[in-house]
Each structure stands twice: as C-alpha cells, then as structure tokens.
Deep mutational scan, measured.
Amino acid sequence: MAAGGDHGSPDSYRSPLASRYASPEMCFVFSDRYKFRTWRQLWLWLAEAEQTLGLPITDEQIQEMKSNLENIDFKMAAEEEKRLRHDVMAHVHTFGHCCPKAAGIIHLGATSCYVGDNTDLIILRNALDLLLPKLARVISRLADFAKERASLPTLGFTHFQPAQLTTVGKRCCLWIQDLCMDLQNLKRVRDDLRFRGVKGTTGTQASFLQLFEGDDHKVEQLDKMVTEKAGFKRAFIITGQTYTRKVDIEVLSVLASLGASVHKICTDIRLLANLKEMEEPFEKQQIGSSAMPYKRNPMRSERCCSLARHLMTLVMDPLQTASVQWFERTLDDSANRRICLAEAFLTADTILNTLQNISEGLVVYPKVIERRIRQELPFMATENIIMAMVKAGGSRQDCHEKIRVLSQQAASVVKQEGGDNDLIERIQVDAYFSPIHSQLDHLLDPSSFTGRASQQVQRFLEEEVYPLLKPYESVMKVKAELCL
C-alpha cells in the first residue's frame, strides 16, 4: 500500500493539533497551500530580480507567473513527485505547466533550498508574528487579574506546605514575570531571523556568478533584492546548502521555554482548584465526569500541561538535527523538520489560546482563602504575639514557653481530632496574655502579614508589564474561544 493518505478522510490519521486544537490561522501558515504558494512567490521574486539585473526574462513571463501564483494543481504535483521522487522539481514542473512561456526560467540558477529553506524562514517569521500578540493578550488578562487582587491576602506555599502570606495578585505576578520573559525572547528570536537568500547549491553562489558572467556586484544585488522582497532586513552571508540548523534550535528553545512557563502556571491553577481557592472557567453544560456528576475538573489547565510537556520535548529534535548536518548538509534534517517545526508552533498556539481562555474567566473564592488563612495564621502570628507581650512588660522566655504549650495543644486538636485551630481562643482565655487581649485582632490582621506584596504588584505592572504590552494595544480586544 502506498504511503500517505487522504487526510480529510475519517479513515486516515490526522494530527489532533490540526484537527482538534490549533487555530485556523496557525494551521494555514503550515498548510501545503501556504507552503507551495510561497515557493511560487519566491520563484517570481527571483525572476523579477534577475530581470532587473539584466537576464533575458520578459515582462510577459513575469506576468504569467504572477497570474498563476494561486493556480496550484495539487493532484498534478503529487503525481509528479511520485514520478520524480523530488518535491521541488515536482512543483517546478507543475508551475511550468500553467506558465508555459515562463517554464524555462522558473528556478533559474537556484537549488531546492532556495524555495525550501527560504519558505521555512518566512513561515517561522509569520508563525512567530501570530504567537506574539496571543502571548501579549494572556499577559494582559493576567495583569488585569493581578491588579484587581493585588491586596487580597492568601496563604503562600513553599514545598506545598503553608508559608508566609502573600497576595493573590502577587502570586499571579510570578506567572506574568515568566511570560514577559517569554514574550521578550519570542520577539528577540523573531527579529534575529535572517533570510537564507540566493546562495546556490553549497552556499557559494557559483551558479549565479556564472549567470551574471562573473559580476560579483550583481550577485550581491540579486541576494539583497530577493531578501528585501521577502520582507527581511538581512540575509546570511555564510550558508551551506541550507541555512544553519542552529536557527531551528533557537526558535524551538524559546517555544519550549514558553511551554515550561505555561505548565507551571496551569499546575498552580490545578492545585488551587483542589484547594477550592480558584477555578478555571466551567461552562453551564460542561460535564466533569461521566460517573461523578459533582466533579469540576480543571480540564483546560490539564490540557495545557499535557501539550506543554510535548512542546518542551520537541527542542531535542533540532538539537540532534543540527549535530548531524555533515559538511554542507545531509538530508537527516528533512523529514524531522517537516514534523517538529509545525508541531512546535501548533502546540504553542494551542496552549496560548487555551491559557487566554482560562485567564479571561478565572474565578476566585475569597471566603475559602480566608478560612485557610484562619487555619494557619495563628501559628504564624506567634512571633508577633511574643513581641507584643514583651512590649507590655512580659518575659520573652516565659511567653515563648506559654505559646509553645498552647500551640501544641491547638495542633493536637487540628491533627488528632480534625478540629479547627483554636490557638487564639486559648490565648484569649489565658490570664497571662490579658495585657494584649485587646491587640489580638490587630495582630491577626492578614494584611499585616503580606509585606509589600501589593506595592510590588503595582510597581511591576507599571514599570515592566504595561510598557512591554504597549506595541500590542491594537490587538488586545480579541477574545479566545474554545470549541473543545
């Protein structure tokens, strides 16, 4: 049975990233139509530049190519590739079939990587351009969430054990800070992308030097003109047959890092959902379990974690691919890159769409948070109580021993009897502590235990987050809708 299948058929496997999760716009960027249309555009740009620099290419040939950029006979191309065992030459023939007058000058002087690699770089750039505003929107939604809850005390956790208090907004800023680093890295790697350009079979530009009869300047002009037509500021000066596969490492490393950030955020949300302090959106008709109707599973956060793990592992592909590119190139890269580049971007696209949807509907339960604080705060307040007693004339050592005994009794009630923490009640009825009984409410005010959390939130948002989001103001209103 021949390899390949009808990918629109229910009898043929289709990647869930495309069929179930990723956005239509990201799927289109990695589609065959987008790819092969870009090949034709690159052939047109090459012909236009070659004509401008004096090669015998007519206006009629150029116009014929322009008129057929979208006229792609995919069936013919597939048949040609089956016959020739070469995808680029299959599309040269297919393009030439609908451009008979231009057929002889299509791909003039070029090698397969002229269309293959340059198209990949265009796709990487455009895919990054799709991700950047999506990530900015996630940051914006979380920034709104953090600002609104900047002063809401909550129990902090280290080692997932109760620690000092923080605020809900401050905790959210930990998430935002990681995503801001990801946004900066995505922008950097996007701006650092260079075009492969017009380089020939081993990167020496020998074929173009021959076409222009040894004119170095025209060869350099050709490279520059096509690079500018493709919208790049610069091209690699040095290439082998391909652009260095280190570029793929750079791009997928940034995406993998984004995956790590999203995994951490969504894990926190899942843990908070278990504590009943916070939940992701839950639709009115949504079913959490087929057997347990009360369940409210954090399905979206779980999906993000599941896909983020996949995204983090994909960076190993370009690392290994770059390491086995012998001399000017081997074909070890080809099949692998067809999979890992598309999957990385479709996965990143999915987790950003999902995280935006989550961040637009996060639900906080202040009463649950308050109750958990009441359970733990008495123990945390013991040092403040000791200091207040010393100020009232008591002995630190005597007070410490009193607190120690009462704390152990209260802990026994919590752990052995399943009761509430009654340390404060014990202190309130103990005559030894009568000098500070009137101060206990103040000493137990949760806001006095959150330090500068709310001020940190305000400063972080104003100095770091809002300036970073400013270039994306025009796209901030787009909502994230999930079908599944």
Rank of each mutant, 00 (worst) to 15 (best):
Q210Y: 05
I436E: 05
I122S: 02
R396H: 03
L46R: 00
D445K: 14
C305P: 03
Q416E: 09
Q61L: 07
S253M: 14
I403T: 06
E376G: 02
Q205M: 14
I351F: 07
A206Q: 15
E283P: 00
P318E: 02
K218M: 09
F232T: 02
R40V: 00
C266P: 11
T321K: 03
L186R: 03
N68E: 13
Q455A: 11
Y365W: 15
V465T: 07
F74M: 14
M26H: 01
D192L: 08
A163E: 01
R149T: 11
M299A: 13
I436V: 10
L461G: 02
A136D: 00
M76T: 10
I385F: 12
K170I: 01
A127S: 11
H310A: 10
G288W: 01
K229D: 01
L362Q: 02
K35C: 11
R125Y: 02
G4Y: 15
I385W: 05
A256M: 08
R141G: 14
Q397I: 06
F460A: 01
F30I: 09
R37M: 14
Y294C: 02
E228R: 12
R40L: 01
L355A: 10
D117M: 03
N185P: 06
M278W: 05
D333V: 02
Y432W: 07
S301W: 01
V262R: 02
Q408D: 10
E464S: 06
E401Q: 13
C266M: 15
P293K: 04
L341K: 11
W45G: 10
I123F: 04
Q456K: 01
G451N: 00
P153C: 12
T227K: 07
Y243E: 06
A322Q: 13
L362W: 03
V368P: 03
M65A: 00
T347R: 06
E64M: 08
R396G: 05
E383R: 03
R270G: 02
S15P: 12
Q458P: 09
S12D: 03
A230G: 03
R188N: 07
D11I: 14
L484G: 11
L84H: 06
T354Y: 06
Q458A: 12
Q61S: 09
W175I: 06
F212M: 11
K101S: 08
L406S: 05
P16L: 12
P471N: 15
Q61T: 09
P56Y: 14
M26V: 07
P10M: 15
F236H: 13
M380E: 09
L211V: 15
Q408G: 14
A256S: 13
P281S: 15
R245S: 03
R296L: 07
D32Q: 14
A453G: 11
G419A: 09
M65T: 04
K264M: 06
G288F: 01
T382Q: 08
D191R: 09
I238Q: 05
E279V: 01
P281L: 06
A344T: 05
Y466K: 14
S19Q: 12
R40C: 00
F157W: 11
D223G: 09
G156L: 00
